[in-house]
């Protein structure tokens, strides 16, 4: 036998750990991520501790003046609660409503394609168009109120836009199709023979759903909730257009933009933006934690 180590060069040892020229394909993607995401983000963090003189004078706290302002100024701070009050129910509704719809649309029937495309249509509409449509359709003079009046269901037009409700409508119309698509794909990943097996074992439809589908769907539900929450959390155009921008729908993104575009206080704008990210990540982490807890709970209960 010749020297056993003869072919094990440094290059080979690197390749063994997964480092070889193929990795160069990652470089363009990394450049984009670092130059357009990591760098601006760190730059933004740097900005938050360079408050304007006016901010320091008004709120004190030295270089942390922006943070002091964020927590002390109720006009800004309350926007966290206002955002949550919109985003959490909207995301929850979208996910919970998607499950039965996806379950029903799972089976084959005539017109399924049409129905699915109808449900997915709003994705192409975008928030701004939805807002414009809501203003016309659900406004005081709109078809919806008109029809309800004619039917005698109400005595005077309902206030459905330019308030909390309007933004909620908009979030459901844009968020629901997204949640539906995701849940559908998770559902289709569950082997239908599992359910058939449960059926032969005598499980009714609720038992099948509760004991088979739901545990298998739980991780997908959490992921869908997170993604729809992210979508709803960053609500901006609809909060301004169909909401009550100075009142019940004064969301964080509006606050951040006010500082950026109207007050030209980039430092404060970055502060609000970062806090927004922080709050959102807190919710995401909480949901992920809940998911692992829940997941263990169901398996434990069965075993």
């Amino acid at each position: 036998m010749t020297d056993g180590r003869a072919t094990a060069s440094l290059r080979h040892r690197l390749a063994e750990r997964g480092i070889d020229p193929t990795l160069l394909l990652l470089v363009p993607g990394l450049v984009v991520a670092v130059a357009l995401f990591v760098y601006p983000f760190s730059y933004g963090i740097g900005l938050t501790v360079q408050p304007t003189a006016a901010m320091q004078e008004q709120w004190g706290g030295g270089i942390l003046a922006n943070y002091v302002a964020f927590f002390r100024d109720p006009f800004v701070f309350d926007s966290i609660g206002l955002t949550m009050r919109l985003a959490l129910p909207a995301a929850l509704f979208n996910v919970l409503a998607s499950v039965p719809v996806a379950m029903v649309l799972r089976h084959r029937f005539r017109g399924k394609r049409l129905l699915t495309s109808l449900l997915v249509l709003p994705i192409t509409l975008g928030t701004v168009l939805t807002a414009q449509g809501l203003l016309i359709f659900a406004g005081r003079q709109g078809w919806l109120n008109r029809a309800l009046l004619e039917l005698g269901l109400i005595d005077e037009p309902l206030q459905l836009v330019n308030n909390y409700l309007g933004v909620m409508f908009s979030l459901v119309i844009t968020g629901f199709p997204f949640a539906f698509l995701l849940i559908s794909s998770y559902l289709s990943g569950i082997d239908p023979s599992l359910e058939r097996a449960a059926k032969t074992l005598g499980a009714g439809w609720w038992q099948r759903f509760r004991r088979i589908i739901l545990p298998l769907l739980a991780p997908g539900l959490a992921t869908t909730f997170i993604l729809t929450f992210v979508l709803a959390f960053s609500v901006f155009p609809s909060a301004r257009l169909v909401g009550d921008a100075m009142g019940s729908t004064r969301v964080m993104s509006l606050m951040a933009f006010r500082a950026f575009g109207e007050q030209n206080d980039y430092a404060m704008a970055s502060t609000i933006a970062l806090m927004m990210g922080a709050v959102e990540l807190l919710v995401v982490v909480a949901v992920l934690g809940l998911r692992s807890l829940l997941y263990r709970g169901t398996t434990g209960g069965k075993g």
Binding site: L26, F37, P40, Y266, S270, L281, V284
Partner: peptide, 24 residues
Amino acid sequence: VVMLLFLLPVLMPPITYGIPLATV
């Protein structure tokens, strides 16, 4: 780490990184 780096921009609200990015 690389996966996380590619996941974050999708998970973050656009305004969060949008404002620092616009400033840059």
